[in-house]
Design a protein around this nucleic acid. Structure first.
Lengths: 127, 127
DNA sequence: ATAGATGCAAAGGGTTTGCACTTGA
DNA sequence: TCAAGTGCAAACCCTTTGCATCTAT
């Protein structure tokens, strides 16, 4: 996926480092806020463009949760899905995947990607 | 879920009937376009409000696809998932479901709902 | 009569884009 | 040098809301 040139700038460095340290997927707003502590005057557009570049390069993945702004996370976590707790709203990574998903589709349909979101109550909130 | 009063109006009748005949989930824009053929001067806000009322009453369900406008479908179709074609952007219903999804989560996590989205190329666009 | 529904237009939130300016290679 | 990146503001898309006007009951 590595497209184009991608210069090294302090803005992108800051954003990458925020994403690298993050323990959970972050939204653009969260990225902006976190990185602004280091880069003053950082603009939203820059964050969106950096995020776009990182997505193109496959360095991060988008975590999309209906009704919420898209979050982003390092892509080196491998293929996985997410679980959102309805009590605490936290999003957890779920290892593993059902690869027989493609069996579900009608003939002639070609499946290239899929996403699975699980909702329920996490271990902590279950107590 | 049946809330409030819900008057019978020609606008809502038209929208319900469009939804009832639809073979795939429809966006507000699609609903507006379809229903406008019968109700001239139909406004977007009316569609949104009608959709909201139908959701409250549990007569339709929202199909949320990241990066795309929410689509709506009759709620009496039973449990199923969706497939979006990357060529034509249409969303199709996929019968069946992998119910071993719950096996993916760590112990103590309780799964109550899940959603599966498949992406690829539909039969028509495959040709 | 009157609460609920409608249409319009304005406003809101998230995301993208045009443009002049800055900066990394 | 000069293409790529930045910041700002305007533009966009989807959705919601305020308000004066209808309309079903």
């Amino acid at each position: 996926m590595a497209t184009g040139s991608n210069r090294k700038t302090k803005q992108r460095d800051a954003l990458v480092s925020v994403l690298e340290r993050a323990e959970r997927p972050l939204s653009v707003a969260e990225l902006l806020e976190a990185a602004s502590k280091r880069i003053e005057g950082l603009g939203v557009a820059t964050v969106y463009r950096a995020v776009g570049a990182l997505l193109d390069d496959g360095r991060i993945d988008a975590v999309e949760i209906p009704g919420e702004p898209t979050r982003y996370e390092r892509s080196d976590k491998g293929h996985h899905h997410h679980f959102q707790c309805e009590k605490c709203d936290r999003v957890f990574d779920i290892a593993g995947c059902l690869d027989n998903l493609r069996k579900l589709v009608p003939p002639k349909f070609r499946v290239k990607q899929h996403s699975v979101m699980l909702y329920g109550v996490c271990a902590t909130c279950s107590r």
